[in-house]
């Protein structure tokens, strides 16, 4: 930027003073703008703090109890195997449940919160008039939502350990990381989509119904993807949920026969997240700087 700053010597003293004040005023926002936005978004989450806590602790508790004590007791046939043979059903589903909880967070935060920011409460426009830039507004929202996903995934993992739903609790420590990555891989493309919407005509309900729910059901969450006919398996291959579940399983009890390296799954997730993030950022800039 320095090359475009008017050269110091040629300017009158009062202009130099204005420029100096402005330059000083932008130093912190240029550096920390995204964190200021995140701070605001997190403060806002407090207003629905109860939902945040319930989705973080309440629903994992229900799922783990329901599946661990109920469903798993019925299933006699081994559903999945690790390197040393068949594994507990609960071990198999838990990493997938964790990842879908993270993805679930984004179906709220990267939809309605975005709509509120641009349209319903217009707070993004308020941020926009400050020294914070549009990419920082986008990044700040992502940081805040990531913080919520970290909370959800870490508490999910703690409950999993408590329920004995993890094979190796040490390598398993990376399962929450994979879960957050799944949230970003699904969420950032969703953010890019939401940020471009100017009228809510029920698109978000459609996303919930026709994207999230099918992914949840056809991503090898409750049974191995290979159980499905081949013409349905592609849903899994493009699903962040399947990749995160498989990576999580590898971290929990190792690679079963025919499983892909967890690194492949992680790489797919990273590519989806980065691509979504790049587009989302551009949509924010385009909209706020129109």
């Amino acid at each position: 930027m320095s090359q475009t700053t008017p050269s110091e010597e040629t300017l009158p003293a009062d202009v130099r003073e204005m420029v100096a004040a402005a330059t000083a005023g932008a130093v912190r926002p240029r550096r920390f703008g995204a964190w200021y936005i995140a701070e605001h978004q997190l403060r806002q989450m407090r207003s629905y703090g109860w939902t945040v806590v319930m989705s973080g602790i309440g629903s994992p508790l229900l799922y783990l109890l329901g599946i661990g004590l109920g469903l798993a007791a019925f299933i006699d046939v081994p559903v999945a195997s690790g390197p040393d043979g068949p594994v507990d059903y609960l071990w198999f589903v838990a990493p997938a449940l964790l990842a879908s909880a993270a993805v679930g967070v984004t179906t709220e935060e990267f939809t309605y919160t975005v709509m509120a920011g641009f349209k319903w409460r217009r707070i993004f426009w308020g941020m926009n008039a400050s020294p914070v830039s549009p990419p920082q507004v986008c990044a700040g929202l992502v940081i805040a939502v990531t913080a919520r996903m970290v909370f959800v995934c870490v508490s999910y993992y703690a409950l999993m350990v408590l329920f004995g739903a993890v094979g190796n609790a040490v390598t398993g420590l990376l399962i929450p990381v994979v879960g957050v990555l799944a949230g970003l891989a699904f969420g950032l493309p969703l953010l890019a989509f939401s940020a471009g919407i100017s009228d809510d005509k029920g698109q978000f309900a459609m996303v919930q119904r026709f994207v999230f729910t099918p992914l949840f059901l056809f991503s090898g969450t409750f049974y191995p993807l290979a159980t499905l006919p081949v013409w349905l398996q592609w849903i899994g291959w493009i699903s962040p949920l399947w990749h995160a579940s498989e990576a999580g399983r590898a971290l929990s009890y190792g690679l079963g026969p025919g499983a892909w390296s967890p690194w492949v799954h992680v790489a797919v997730l990273v590519v989806m997240a980065v691509a979504g993030g790049v587009v989302a950022r551009r949509v924010f800039v385009g909209r706020l700087r129109g």
């Binding site: 930027m1 475009t4 700053t5 008017p6 300017l11 202009v15 130099r16 204005m18 420029v19 004040a21 402005a22 330059t23 005023g25 932008a26 926002p29 240029r30 703008g33 605001h40 806002q44 409460r121 217009r122 707070i123 426009w125 308020g126 008039a129 400050s130 020294p131 914070v132 830039s133």
Partner: peptide, 27 residues
């Protein structure tokens, strides 16, 4: 303030107070 908004947006905005036509308070 002596600066070009195209290149020094954050600098300029750091010195402005803006009351927009439509309120955008955080309700």
């Amino acid at each position: 303030l002596g600066l070009d908004p195209d290149t020094h947006g954050p600098e300029i905005r750091s010195q402005l107070g803006v009351v927009p036509q439509d309120d955008n308070l955080d309700t």
